[in-house]
């Protein structure tokens, strides 16, 4: 372990005094094994207390600290700085309103999630014990349940940027997760919601979401399966 000097460029925006976001440079010295989150903590704790960002679990499961580092959407907590050399450029996720510094407004993101009815819809009576679901049936949705709702995918989606009404990859992935759950009976309702120009059809298989996903979920592939399902359902 050794200390290294790095240069960090952060896109700052303080709503009380800034008219628009601007870049600020910090020259600091950190452990070479630091993560991007360690760097932000160091700046916040030792250099500038006014810096705002979200973080919590530190172990890439809570999804708080998604941000853009050197042009890529990453989770700050799991991203070692050695990936970038000694120059870091940190900015908030694109496509969302900035509330302050690296903190963006996620209310629309979560509201979209609610729209696709993200819960099991059942017509059948509940069994005494569990529903029977084979490992093969579970396999269909297994990877999609890894989603931590960090919003890195939606923030990377060129179709999302100009269309604030587009449901976006995260909500659509959630729709996939329930439509393809062998226990669910609500596929018709959900497919009707996503069968819209602002639903699944706004996805043009650009693959940015997949590249941005810190959980390496094959989002684009699942969205394609969802499209096929919508077409099958409407034929």
């Amino acid at each position: 372990m050794a200390k290294i000097d790095i240069n960090v460029k952060i896109l700052r925006y303080q709503p009380a005094k800034d008219e628009k976001p601007h870049w600020q440079d910090f020259a600091i010295s950190v452990e070479d094994e630091s993560t991007v989150l360690d760097v932000l903590n160091e700046i916040h704790w030792q250099h500038d207390g006014t810096l705002a960002y979200r973080r919590s679990c530190r172990s890439s499961i809570c999804g708080s600290c998604a941000m853009k580092v050197n042009g890529r959407n990453v989770l700050a907590c799991e991203t070692p700085i050695h990936r970038f050399g000694t120059k870091l450029k940190i900015e908030p996720l694109s496509g969302f309103e900035i509330l302050k510094d690296l903190v963006v407004d996620l209310e629309p993101f979560f509201a979209k999630l609610k729209r696709i009815r993200p819960y099991l819809i059942l017509d059948k009576p509940l069994p005494d014990k569990e529903f029977v679901q084979s490992p093969q049936q579970l396999e269909q949705i297994g990877e999609s349940t890894l989603c931590i709702l960090c919003a890195a995918c939606s923030a990377a989606c060129p179709s999302s940027w100009p269309n604030s009404d587009y449901l976006g990859p995260a909500a659509l992935l959630k729709a996939y997760r329930f439509v393809f759950d062998s226990r669910d009976d609500g596929a018709d309702q959900r497919l009707e919601i996503v069968n819209d120009k602002n639903g699944v059809w706004r996805c043009h298989t650009i693959f940015n979401c997949m590249e941005a996903c810190p959980k390496k979920i094959k989002i684009t592939e699942y969205l394609s399966r969802l499209k096929v399902k919508v077409v099958e359902n409407s034929l």
Partner: peptide
């Protein structure tokens, strides 16, 4: 508690015969 979670849709890992 566990059966209730399963009925809510929790994707529990399964045995070969489809149980939790």
């Amino acid at each position: 508690t566990v059966y209730e979670f399963e009925h809510m849709g929790v994707p529990f890992s399964r045995t070969e015969d489809g149980r939790i």
